[in-house]
Design a protein around this nucleic acid. Sequence first.
DNA 1: AAACCTTCCAACCGCAAGGAC
DNA 2: CGTCCTTGCGGTTGGAAGGTT
Length: 196
Amino acid sequence: MRKPCCEKKETNKGAWSKQEDQKLIDHIQKHGEGCWRSLPQAAGLLRCGKSCRLRWVNYLRPDLKRGNFGEDEEELIIKLHALLGNRWSLIAGRLPGRTDNEVKNYWNTHLKKKLIKRGIDPNNDRLAHYSAGAPKSCLSNSNSIRTSPVNFNGDDDNNVGGSDSSMDPKCNQTSSLPDLNLDLTVAPPPMEYVGS
DNA sequence: AAACCTTCCAACCGCAAGGAC
DNA sequence: CGTCCTTGCGGTTGGAAGGTT
């Protein structure tokens, strides 16, 4: 039986206070990320490392974009989800400044409904796309996203098609799927995202 | 104005992968 | 090689905020 990550130590739960945020930011700015296990004590926080990591990754990181998703981002999420399924971290990895949690929430609250409106089953969008009835709006309306072969290789940790042998079989079908005409390379951010 | 309902998002939980020993 | 520990991921939940009656 695995021990809970926070043992029975007295740790805070729930929403983070500004002081806690500041402590975490200060500590990471001084020492960098890493060793989340020991970070709370070192930073003087009554939180478990997991909680600190989540707070940093999802909310405090300076490179986070935040704010509404653009249409390009929406379409990209939809396409990536059709290809990858609920692999939110991979999807988020293709959206600079977005976190897996943010993408997941956005999918569950906005995009699911959007797909349903389009007549696509969001739980089965992959099948829907791959069968004959894929709505044009999903796959062909990709002017904003360059069309070229899927690029998942390189030095990226999120190497999808490569070493990830745990990938579910459906993902391995990608090589035999119809040409989805997807480009998953990260293009330079559109101007609207630069400097805002 | 108040009660109730719905939506949204930050945070938690449990599990699995991978590295260290 | 097996076990333990840490990290990261995805699913789920709780509560605040906004909307409706």
